[in-house]
C-alpha cells in the first residue's frame, strides 16, 4: 500500500508542479519583462502589477499543492525515489506543457536538452 501511496503522491506532485509552472510562466509572459517594467514605471507599480495577476496566484496555488504532496511523499518514501521521480519527471512534463499550452517553440534541440537534463537529474538524485 505504501508503494501505491508514494506513486499517487508522485503523480499529484508532478501534475501540480507542471500546472503551477505553466500558470506562473503564463502570468509572467503576460506581464512582460520585469526589468523593463521597473525601468519604465518604477518598483511599486511593478509589484502591484505582479500581485494583481490572478493567473499567478492560481499557479502558486498549484505549486503549493505540489509542495505539500512532495512533503507527504518524502515522509513516506526515501528521497532516492521521491527526489528523482518528482524532480526529473517534471522537466519532461514541463517541456510538453510549454509546447501545448504556452505555444513555445520546443524544437528538437530543446527536447534533447530536456532529455539530457532528465537523465542527469535521474542519475544524480538516485545515487
Amino acid at each position: 500500500m505504501r508503494v501505491l501511496y508514494t506513486w499517487v503522491c508522485i503523480l499529484i506532485t508532478v501534475c501540480a508542479a507542471t500546472a503551477g509552472d505553466v500558470l506562473v510562466a503564463l502570468a509572467m509572459r503576460r506581464i512582460g519583462d520585469l526589468g523593463e517594467f521597473r525601468r519604465k514605471r518604477g518598483v511599486v507599480p511593478m509589484l502591484l502589477r505582479v500581485l494583481s495577476s490572478g493567473v499567478l496566484f492560481a499557479g502558486i496555488f498549484f505549486m503549493g499543492i505540489a509542495f505539500f504532496s512532495n512533503l507527504v511523499g518524502l515522509s513516506w518514501a526515501d528521497l532516492s525515489l521521491m527526489g528523482p521521480a518528482s524532480a526529473a519527471l517534471t522537466y519532461i512534463t514541463n517541456a510538453l506543457a510549454a509546447k501545448l499550452f504556452l505555444k513555445e517553440d520546443v524544437n528538437r534541440r530543446r527536447w534533447l536538452a530536456t532529455i539530457f537534463v532528465f537523465c542527469g537529474v535521474l542519475i544524480l538524485t538516485h545515487t
Partner: peptide
C-alpha cells in the same frame, strides 16, 4: 528569481537551464 526569469524567457528555456543548480 524564477518569476523574474520567466518574465523574459521561455519556460522550456528556464527549466533545463536552472538544472545547473545540481
Amino acid at each position: 528569481s524564477y518569476m523574474t526569469a520567466l518574465s523574459f524567457a521561455d519556460l522550456s528555456y528556464v527549466m533545463p537551464a536552472t538544472a545547473i543548480s545540481y
